[in-house]
């Protein structure tokens, strides 16, 4: 797929997404309020009931900032809607047209995902600025040019990793038709083990050791900690390298699944 086509797809998808502006803003506010509101109430209750100053190395204000960051990062990293989902294409037969086009399906879907996700940069920036104004952020965790650049690279890697995970999991639809429940399971696992539900530091040591070998922490935990000055340059570089490794591994797995799965594909109807 040439870069001209790639960016054309990105641009078209982004424009389509932004053409539904009511939905765009409602989803921005509602998703943010839901994601952030739930954890805010839960953590406030935990601090109040336990009477502890810190939990898992986080103070009450620290955890609020962590969640603000993680929710904002999540907006850029993962995509919850079904529009353009690979499993949907397989199940509904929308894949037919992509098989007839002289382009690779995976790069096309990647471009499509970037296009669908790109407008969220506006949501991210706007909600981020509002958060900066409303929340008292300590000077030592305030974003700097360096952390913003480092976080941008980490978020880009996390976005690609999230896409590759979806690319592999959704291809199960070649055999199972409907993978909605698998998608929900992935959502839960990535949220729990990726640091979206809880900071990974609150897990027991042995669990953290296991999670260090899994790709999920690279999705939310690493980008958030980079933005909050909690990851040094070495950890950042190592995390990026691990992300690239996992993307390559999932890409290879995705190719195998595609080769096998497309033999099973019926294109809906006989």
């Amino acid at each position: 797929m040439n870069s001209r086509l790639f960016w054309k797809v990105v641009s078209l998808e982004a424009r389509t997404k932004m053409s539904y502006r009511v939905e765009f803003w409602i989803s921005a506010v509602a998703a943010f309020a839901a994601d952030f509101g739930v954890v805010w109430f839960v953590w406030m209750a935990m601090f109040r009931e336990s009477g502890a100053e810190t939990i898992g190395g986080w103070t009450r204000d620290g955890i609020i900032i962590y969640y603000l960051t993680v929710v904002l990062v999540g907006k850029l990293v993962r995509y919850r809607e079904f529009t353009g989902a690979i499993s949907h294409d397989i199940y509904e037969g929308g894949l037919n047209r992509y098989l007839v086009f002289p382009v690779g399906y995976m790069p096309y879907k990647l471009a499509q995902r970037i296009g669908l996700q790109a407008p969220r940069i506006v949501q991210f920036a706007l909600l981020g600025v509002i958060a900066l104004l409303l929340v008292d952020i300590p000077a030592e965790t305030a974003p700097t040019i360096t952390t913003i650049v480092m976080a941008a690279a980490t978020i880009a890697m996390a976005f690609l990793l999230s896409f590759m995970l979806d690319y592999c999991i959704h291809q199960v639809a070649f055999w199972a038709d409907n993978v909605w429940s698998l998608d929900v399971a992935k959502w839960f696992v990535t949220s729990l083990l990726g640091g979206f539900m809880l900071p990974l530091s609150v897990f027991p040591g042995w669990a953290q050791d296991i999670m260090a070998w899994l790709p999920f922490r690279l999705l939310f935990d690493l980008p958030a900690r980079v933005l909050l000055h909690r990851a040094d340059a070495a950890e950042w570089a190592l995390g990026l390298a691990a992300g690239v490794f996992w993307c390559a591994a999932l890409w290879a797995a995705g190719r195998v699944l595609w080769r096998r799965g497309s033999l099973e594909y019926t294109g809906v109807g006989i």
Partner: peptide, 13 residues
Amino acid sequence: KTTLVKMLAGIIH
């Protein structure tokens, strides 16, 4: 009919 067309269009094997 459609199965035949889909094979010739390269959609299915």
